[in-house]
Every structure is written in C-alpha cells, then in structure tokens.
Design a protein around this nucleic acid. Structure first.
Length: 194
DNA sequence: CTCCGGATTCGT
DNA sequence: CGAATCCGGAGT
C-alpha cells in the first residue's frame, strides 16, 4: 500500500548556499518559491510574490543599521535563518537572513499567494505571518528545518515576469529610499500594492 | 525609568 | 488620515 506523499517535499528545500548570496539577488529569486510552515501536522503553504532586500548596516533602511543589539542579533548571524520581529506593536514581519555571517543583510517577505491551508488575507508582511502562523517564536529558527522551509515549486514552474520598485515605508532613509530593492511578480493580484 | 517612533493594517 | 498597540533604543 502506498503512503500519501507530503504536498511539498522537505528534501527539495533550498540549500544554505541559496541564501549565502547578495540580498537583492536572493530577494528576486525567492519570487515564485513556496514558503512552508508545518503546524501540528498541517502544511501551511504560500507562494512568495513580493519581497524586499535590506543590504546591511550601511543601508539606512535596514534594522541592522542600528548595529548588533538583542533585537538584530539574528540578522548578524549566518544565512538561511528567519528574522521575525514585531512592528507597530501588532504585526509580525518575517525576513530571511542572507549573505555570510556578519553581513547582516536580509530579505523581507511582503506577500504570498495562498497555495495550501492559508486562511484569510496574505497580501502584506503582517497578514502573511498571521496566515502562516509565524510569530516571534520563530525568530532565529533555521529555514533548513523539517517544519519551516522554502522550496522551488514542484514541476519546475517558472515564476513569471518580475518587476522592481522602491521599498515600502522607508522614506526616512534618504538615498536608500529610492533604491529599487522591492521585487514582485508583475500583475499578481496578491502583491500588497500596485 | 520614560519617551519616541516604527520594514502595518483597518476603519473612518 | 488616524488609531491601535508594544518593543527596542536612546536619553534623563
């Protein structure tokens, strides 16, 4: 008798080397990938449709520009770990740490398209964390874990046409506000804003 | 210890 | 456009 295979195969998860590269490159290549969180045996899956790259301490829009603090500890660590923090006292935001340890760059996941078991809206960094059950407990969690990981979608599907734009909500950061470090799938209805 | 402001969202 | 709501960082 054949056992049912999991919907997403943990054996296909993106390797550490995927994250150990330029943050803007990782941000663009994460588009179309599946973010998977398994909670109590339930597979929560979202297709990443919008990301932002934060380049490191020199990037005045990045949290790591505050330096190494208890909050930014994970950002300064090795690539492939989740940096999860609370914004405005109520919404969780999830990042993936990129590049080598100490570089303190990361990619913020801003929107996903529901694939499996995602209740409610997912078009915004706070909303997708709610739908995927992501909160502060996952700060510092390895994204090469059996219950929390990212894979290329089955069947080798292409992500589609991508676009770049200025990042959202970083007007205070001077010249960094204009950089085209926000990436999204063109025309995808789950992108948080046009 | 207090104060300020934020990588947001939702309702007015 | 403003409120909700809480934590980290900076200043007293």
């Amino acid at each position: 008798m054949e056992f049912e295979r999991p919907f997403a195969d943990p054996g296909e998860m993106l390797p550490r080397s995927f994250y150990d590269r330029d943050a803007a490159l990782v941000a663009r290549e994460l588009l179309g990938k599946w973010l998977i969180h398994i909670v109590a045996g339930v597979e929560l899956i979202g297709r990443i449709v919008e990301t932002e790259a934060y380049l490191g301490p020199h990037d005045l829009a990045a949290h790591s520009s505050e330096g190494l603090t208890p909050r930014t500890r994970v950002l300064f660590g090795p690539p492939g770990y989740a940096y999860v923090y609370l914004v405005y006292g109520l919404h969780w935001c999830m990042n993936v740490v990129t590049e080598r340890e100490g570089n303190a760059s990361a990619v913020l996941v801003r929107a996903v398209e529901p694939v499996q078991n995602l209740p409610g809206r997912t078009c915004g960094p706070g909303l997708l964390c709610r739908a995927l059950g992501i909160d502060g407990r996952l700060n510092g969690h390895d994204l090469l874990s059996a219950d929390f990981f990212i894979v290329a979608p089955p069947g080798g599907r292409e992500a589609g046409e991508t676009a770049a734009a200025p990042r959202v909500g970083v007007a205070y950061s001077g010249i960094w506000a204009q950089q085209l470090l926000r990436f999204y799938l063109k025309g995808n209805p789950f992108v948080s804003r046009p």
